[in-house]
């Protein structure tokens, strides 16, 4: 683990990139996720972030998730969060961010949601 966060690339499906994040998403490590995810935003690409392995998330982490979501949305894509751990869900619920962060139970569900959106 690099400073407490590990980001792994999953299999890309069509225009959707998959990243799996494990460890801490805090003031020290959140920037790493931002740097990793942002280059994919553009040309209608979408991002699936699997967060089941997150052990802690702070304000920097939720901020980065919101910023990534907005960046993808601005460029005609979307961000979907998959199986967020309890640490992530706590913060999302505390700040009532459900309308702004889409959550799915599995990567397959996320992919379906994205293609469903694209064809809609």
């Amino acid at each position: 683990m690099d400073d407490g966060i590990e980001i792994e690339r999953g299999e890309t499906r069509g225009k959707t990139v998959v990243l799996r994040v494990r460890g801490r998403l805090d003031a020290k490590t959140a920037l790493r996720l931002l740097e990793r995810a942002m280059p994919f935003a553009g040309m209608g690409r979408s991002l699936v972030l699997t967060l089941s392995g997150i052990t802690f998330m702070g304000s920097s982490g939720i901020g980065v998730l919101l910023a990534i979501a907005q960046a993808f949305q601005d460029r005609k894509g979307s961000l979907r969060l998959v199986a967020p751990s309890a640490a992530v869900e706590s913060v999302v619920k505390l700040l009532n961010l459900e309308p702004f962060l889409k959550i799915d139970a599995s990567e397959d569900a996320a992919h379906s949601a994205i293609t469903g959106q694209a064809s809609a």
Partner: peptide, 19 residues
């Protein structure tokens, strides 16, 4: 923070106090 404002979400920081 007014999270409904996309600029607030784009900014991505400053949520610590509220948390």
């Amino acid at each position: 923070n007014d999270f409904a404002d996309p600029d607030v979400r784009r900014r991505g920081r400053g949520f610590g106090f509220e948390l």
